[in-house]
Design a protein around this nucleic acid. Structure first.
Length: 303
DNA sequence: GACCAGGACCATT
DNA sequence: AATGGTCATGGT
């Protein structure tokens, strides 16, 4: 009869409780930075890398349950960024009326740290699509070309670049992604054959990292900044989409039509060292106010 | 049925 | 350097 080690850090379990402060899990998972989380009651079901996981927030703790036992939970705390001091981030925002309001409306909203390939592929699929449609496309893609997550019968990993690189454009088009299919295919091939190293991008400075990403067809400044912010954690990457355009023009340019390039230029200097976070607060606050995003309190009410 | 969606690209001015 | 059309598909 073997004796298991009793060292705490080597314990194996399929459940962990993470203490958190200033963390709104519902807002974080539903605000449109990640597309593969489904609410079930008060829990959220998703797949992080190869791990199927159920997340439940109870006050200042997040309980995670996995389909298979884990000895190392680093993948989870890294993804959730539970160690980030949110108060310090919020304190770096500009002191103005729209940001004060966004801080209140989005309090506890966090930036995740996602897998670069999944994030890149997902945002290639995002252009001129509503978030609900992006979720549908990605769900189809994962069902067809992902792998079953260990210990589950209906949760899929995100398909690797290697897997997608050998597909035909028509295979991807049948996942409802339309004109984005050749873009995704080209990105998968570039990553798979080493023409684009997603590992190297992490070590570049922001302008150089942008230059690398936008060499991919279908990847422009907005999608590049989404990947740089949501996957690589560049703190001043600032994706400017239709919602952010609307917010910036309304709050900072007296509702005037301003060229996107000028909005980016303004944002790069105005929002400070955590501009990316500020961007997500502007984005989510505006979508909340227009009824396009669910207030996290309502998400906690039993369905 | 028009309008628009976490855009990018290409052809015109 | 700015504008306008186009791309595919589906929600509202």
């Amino acid at each position: 009869m073997s004796v298991e080690t009793s060292v705490e850090s080597h314990s194996v379990a399929n459940r962990i409780s993470l203490p958190v402060r200033d963390y709104d899990l519902a807002a974080t998972l539903s605000c449109g930075q990640a597309f593969r989380w489904d609410r079930e009651g008060n829990s959220w079901l998703g797949v992080i890398d190869k791990h199927a996981v159920r997340l439940t927030q109870q006050g200042d703790e997040i309980i995670a349950q996995t389909a298979t036992p884990q000895s190392d939970w680093t993948w989870l705390t890294y993804y959730l960024q539970t160690d980030v001091d949110l108060a310090a981030v919020l304190a770096s925002f500009p002191i103005d009326a729209p940001m004060k309001s966004a801080r209140v409306d989005c309090y506890g909203l966090r930036l995740l740290r996602q897998d670069p390939w999944e994030c890149l592929a997902s945002f290639i699929l995002s252009s001129t699509k509503q978030i609900v449609q992006i979720r549908q496309i990605i769900s189809l893609l994962c069902e067809r070309y992902g792998n079953l997550a260990a210990g589950t019968s209906n949760a899929f990993t995100f398909p690797t670049a290697q897997r997608l690189a050998v597909l035909k454009e028509s295979d991807l088009r049948s996942c409802k992604m339309g004109f984005r299919a050749p873009y995704l295919l080209a990105a998968a091939k570039a990553v798979n054959d080493g023409k684009l190293s997603l590992e190297k991008i992490a070590r570049l400075d922001l302008p150089e990292a942008r230059r690398r990403l936008v060499t991919l067809p279908g990847v422009g400044p907005k999608i590049a900044d989404c990947v740089l912010l949501f996957a690589y954690g560049f703190p001043t990457a600032f994706p400017v989409d239709v919602w952010v355009i609307k917010a910036l023009q309304r709050f900072y340019f007296r509702n005037r039509q301003i060229p996107i390039a000028k909005l980016r230029e303004f944002s790069a200097s105005y929002f400070g060292p955590n501009g990316g976070y500020a961007q997500q607060y502007l984005f989510h606050a505006l979508r909340l106010s227009e009824g396009k995003a669910q207030p996290s309190k309502s998400l906690l009410v039993s369905s």
